[in-house]
Design a protein around this nucleic acid. Structure first.
Lengths: 340, 340
DNA sequence: CACTCCCGTGAAATCGCTGTCACAACCAGA
DNA sequence: TCTGGTTGTGACAGCGATTTCACGGGAGTG
């Protein structure tokens, strides 16, 4: 910066003022400084600036993985927002428990970001408390934490509407296929189950524990096992509601493989509406991670702006049932084919 | 840091030495300092430290998008590496030309990172030159730039082997389906075409421009059009080699929709081996973005370590043909069904 | 014409840390 | 006892910006 100052024949103070766009610089001097800066290929060091301003010009995000449709969409809509605000994006990927422990031990984001966005973690009270005295706004995304700013999708309502859709098609034996994820890394599961149960209850359909099964994501074999359990019940389901599209697709895949017609014989409903759902023409409950990323980003900008505004507000995003070709009215006994 | 020093009854120099793990601190003092630091929840400010060391403790990556299988995998394997080395990960997402221009105009990474990883951009010479005087190691990933460290997949060989696989199955009329991407954001396309042509030439099969068509990714309709062009040739192909899995899947999808049996009547081969390929049991040429991310990360660490080592080395990663259920021997005229 | 006020600018202190240098204390060898 | 070499620690300068404060010079006011 001293170089620029010398070249433009002004003081470093003036260079600083110019480059930050403060109005108290005469047009003529401004032009000279900008020219000099350009010629010298000069860029201010955020490091040095942050030392005195106390702001780092960086937003940190903590994500369980970078390699998923959900995170990709969310970050992809968050990034341009931050960039437009002149902020950098710092990513902490915390894929397992060891990394997680280390993260909360050292809190590397401390003093190295102006805000932290925590995605999809099922945090303990202790962990939340650690984040509280991080000295920066912390925004919880895809999860809700009491008294802290959170942005999330209404999973209960989503599952409620999804189940109602199946009920409206005449289904009464509706199974719910849960996902067994790495523990502590999401808790939408329980809420979706809750919505499913609420819908059944309000329709007067008795809950049946046999109709709730678990599987692992990304494991066709595990899906086949879950399916087997359901298909060998005394009274098997006519519709399957999977907690995630990926599981739903695995179910469809296994059903088709065994020549059980979808949706003629069994309807399958997913949750998420990721691209895979479109490829398989899967009926599903859509959520929008990109909306979530955007809202979270805007909230972050707001909280960075004025310190104590809006604390503790929760932003709940809607879901939408997207009927496609894997859900259909329940077959009447007469026209119920055994295979496609 | 002054607080910690006072609490531990030592100077800030000693605190600094302790926290950086230098050996010239007596065990007793070290213990006192560490205790004080823990009690005060102290973490050194990278900003301040970098001001004097000149190293930021950050690696920047420039990616066209965060929302793709490829980038997700690559970053997902890069991130743990950096973390283990105590480095932060700074992401610049440059989705369009405007952002790109802005990025090269201001080079926001200047002085704010110790190294830059540039993913999948087809850079102009001018842009490369700009990056050259960024004052930090720049590593080109999923692309190669002469004289600069690059990590990429051998697309020519991949396409060569893929095409050979189809030739070995007896196919002679093999179409190549290119992808029309956003311009300037990848150039694997040309190399894959080249490999395809090489394989045909070495097998003595004449090249036929009619067999090379273009489509857009993520657009089933566009795939249908490309397919229509091929199927209405006087001598239609018996095998389709798509530049990307997503396009291959769209082709399979359209073929099945029109009841043209895959692979009995037409074989389809993809390129990438992304999860979608597995869902559709697509034969494909596999590349490993996670290997690429890891190798690029290790190279970055090395270049940050000793300044002038290994400059200009290129690391070329292999591909593997994965035969699955969408490629089969070409049908003999006799047993060639018109539909499945 | 004198006075005040604002505007544009520069000098200097400051942010939190690292790294150099000096120094005190101790030990070993002469 | 003296010298020379370690070892552990503290004082202090300086990294590159921002920010406060002071100042000079014109414009506006009475």
């Amino acid at each position: 910066m001293a170089d620029v100052a010398e070249r433009a024949g002004v003081s470093t103070s003036t260079v600083s003022r110019t480059l930050r766009g403060l109005s108290t610089v005469s047009p003529e001097v401004r032009a000279r400084v900008e020219k000099a800066a350009r010629e010298l290929n000069f860029a201010v060091s955020r490091q040095a600036a942050s030392l005195v301003t106390g702001r780092t010009g960086t937003v940190a995000v903590m994500v369980p993985t970078l390699n998923s449709w959900f995170m990709g969409s969310a970050l992809s809509s968050l990034a341009p927002l931050l960039r437009a605000a002149g902020l950098q994006l710092n990513v902490y990927e915390i894929p397992d428990l060891a990394e997680r422990t280390a993260f909360f031990e050292h809190l590397p984001a401390r003093r190295n970001a102006d805000a932290l966005l925590v995605f999809s973690f099922d945090l303990t009270d202790e962990e939340t408390a650690r984040l509280d005295d991080l000295g920066m706004p912390v925004i919880y995304v895809s999860q809700h934490v009491d008294g802290r700013p959170s942005v999330y999708v209404d999973d209960v309502a989503g599952a409620l509407h999804g189940t109602r859709h199946l009920l409206n098609l005449g289904h009464r034996r509706i199974a719910f296929v849960q996902t067994q994820g790495a523990s502590g890394f999401s808790f939408s599961s329980d809420e979706r189950l809750l919505g499913y149960q609420q819908a059944l209850t309000e329709a007067g359909v008795p809950l049946d524990d046999d109709l709730v099964v678990s599987t692992r994501v990304g494991d066709k074999r595990a899906a086949a096992e879950a399916l087997g359990t359901l298909l060998s019940l005394r009274e098997p389901p006519t519709a399957l509601f999977a907690e995630q599209d990926e599981v739903a697709v695995a179910l469809v895949w296994n059903l088709r493989k065994t020549r059980i017609a979808v949706p003629e014989r069994i309807s399958v409903l997913g949750f998420d509406d990721q691209p895979l759902a479109d490829w398989f023409d899967l009926s599903t409950v859509a959520q929008s991670p990109s909306d979530m990323g955007r809202e979270a980003g805007e909230l972050a900008l707001k909280l960075i702006g004025d310190a104590e505004a809006e604390h503790g507000r929760h932003l709940v995003l809607p879901t939408h049932v997207i009927p496609r070709s894997t859900t259909a009215p329940v077959a009447q006994p007469a026209d119920q084919p055994l295979s496609e």
